[in-house]
Each structure stands twice: as structure tokens, then as C-alpha cells.
């Protein structure tokens, strides 16, 4: 016990650094996947067959394979197969590769939710806008979008909470996120080795983070409760 109390500040310091990577990956994934998912959703809804079919195939592949494999492919494929190691060897290269894999993966999940959201807004809403002389673009931004957001907040919330935990997968390409940082104390980090409790302690970070995210999303859901 005494040992743990002695180690605690060092461990927390290291875990905080790891957690910043986790947070960064989380934020970059959301910032990238929110808009990219919308573009993919429009692609899968396209009336041009070749676009909707290509998009559908892409979504199927990404959702049908583990994110962990996608991470490995994105990270190793350029260097090992194309002999063009675009990511470099360092932590920033690993972060870039992880970001690309996460953004692509989550865009596809988001796009399916967006698609459901767009389709769940009754066509009468769009037609009402049309007969009032609104353009398709005006109708999307001023009529459809908020109704769609209201409908997708609950399923998107589920994905976001999954994302909090999924960030741990980036450890497979040695991204120094929080679990990597916790595990490092088993093999020797800051002169501490053979300590397993820091690894377990990372769960606490996830719990708190998820708690905050959940409360924020519930707040957003309540904010959109003013209309039906």
C-alpha cells in the first residue's frame, strides 16, 4: 500500500500523458468523422447507381472488418507493401495513422446513422419547403438538418461512448495512449516495473471520461426535446 502511495504521483503523471493521446485521438476522430460521415451518407443515398453502390461496398467492408486490422493495414501498408513509409517511425506518425484509420472507420458507422436520420424525416417536410419556393440546400439546412440531428443523437451517443473505449485499440500500433502508458509500468517505466495496478487504474480514467461524455450527450438530447 505504502509503495502504491509513493508511486501514485509518478503513475498519474504518466497516465495523464497517455490520456492526452487518448483524448486527442477521440477529438480528431469525431471532428473528422462527423463531416466525412455526412458525405458518405449522401454518397450511399445518391441516385447515381455507381456512386451509391461503390459507397455501399466501402461501408460494408469497413463495418465488416475489425478496426484493429484496419489500424494495422493503414499503419504498415504504405511502408511494407508500397515501400513508401509515409507515417515515419515516431509517435506523431503513429498518431496520424491511427487518426486516419479511426476517422474512416467511424465515418462509415456515422454515415449509416445519418442515412437513417435523413430517411426518417418525412418527405412531407421537404415537399412543404419546395412548394414554399425554398431551394434543396435551404430545405436541408433550415428544415431537415435539426430534425435529423434530433433523431440521430441517441444512436450517435452510443457510438461516441464506444469510441471512448475503442481508442485503446490504437495500442496495437504502439500509440502511447493511456493503456499503453499503464502497461508500461509492468515492463519498467520511470524506474517502476512489475506494477500491474497502474494498468487497472486506467479503467478509472475511462469511467470518468465516459461519465462526462454521457452527461453532455444527455444534455444535448434534452435541449432538443422542445419539439417533436
Amino acid at each position: 500500500m505504502e509503495v502504491i502511495i509513493q508511486q501514485l504521483p509518478i503513475v498519474i503523471h504518466a497516465l495523464n500523458i497517455g490520456f492526452m493521446q487518448t483524448l486527442k485521438l477521440f477529438a480528431v476522430t469525431l471532428l473528422g468523422a462527423f463531416p466525412l460521415g455526412l458525405i458518405i451518407a449522401f454518397g450511399s443515398l445518391s441516385r447515381i447507381k455507381i456512386i451509391s453502390m461503390t459507397t455501399g461496398l466501402f461501408i460494408w467492408i469497413i463495418r465488416g472488418t475489425p478496426l484493429m486490422i484496419q489500424l494495422l493495414i493503414v499503419y504498415y501498408f504504405p511502408g511494407l507493401v508500397l515501400h513508401n513509409p509515409i507515417w515515419g517511425g515516431g509517435e506523431s506518425g503513429r498518431f496520424m495513422a491511427a487518426s486516419v484509420a479511426f476517422v474512416i472507420n467511424y465515418s462509415c458507422y456515422f454515415s449509416e446513422i445519418y442515412r437513417g436520420g435523413i430517411q426518417s424525416v418525412p418527405v412531407g417536410q421537404q415537399e412543404a419547403g419546395l412548394v414554399l419556393g425554398m431551394t434543396k440546400k435551404q430545405i436541408f439546412f433550415h428544415v431537415t438538418l435539426l430534425q435529423m440531428i434530433k433523431r440521430i443523437v441517441p444512436p450517435i451517443s452510443n457510438e461516441i461512448i464506444t469510441l471512448v473505449k475503442d481508442t485503446a485499440l490504437a495500442r496495437i500500433i504502439a500509440l502511447q495512449e493511456i493503456i499503453w502508458a499503464g502497461q508500461a509500468f509492468m515492463k519498467g517505466s520511470y524506474n517502476i516495473s512489475g506494477a500491474i495496478w497502474p494498468l487497472f487504474f486506467t479503467a478509472f480514467y475511462y469511467l470518468v471520461f465516459n461519465g462526462i461524455v454521457t452527461v453532455m450527450l444527455a444534455g444535448l438530447e434534452r435541449k432538443l426535446d422542445y419539439f417533436r
Binding site: 418525412p122 412531407g124 417536410q125 415537399e127 412543404a128 419547403g129 419546395l130 412548394v131 414554399l132 419556393g133 425554398m134 433550415h142 428544415v143 435539426l146 430534425q147 434530433k150 422542445y226 419539439f227 417533436r228
Partner: peptide, 28 residues
């Protein structure tokens, strides 16, 4: 431009739920 010669009131109203009655009338 052409469809503005006509107005259409639907059987199912199709008001925009996120706007107040006044905002519904003013939006277009």
C-alpha cells in the same frame, strides 16, 4: 420561380416541428 405561382396546403399540414407557428410562416 414557377411553383411560386401556386401554394399548396397538405392534408397532413407538414408544419416544421422545430419552429414556432410564427417562424413557420416567416421562414420561406
Amino acid at each position: 420561380r414557377k411553383r411560386l405561382h401556386f401554394g399548396l396546403v397538405f392534408q397532413s399540414f407538414n408544419l416544421f416541428p422545430q419552429y414556432t407557428a410564427l417562424q413557420n410562416v416567416m421562414l420561406a
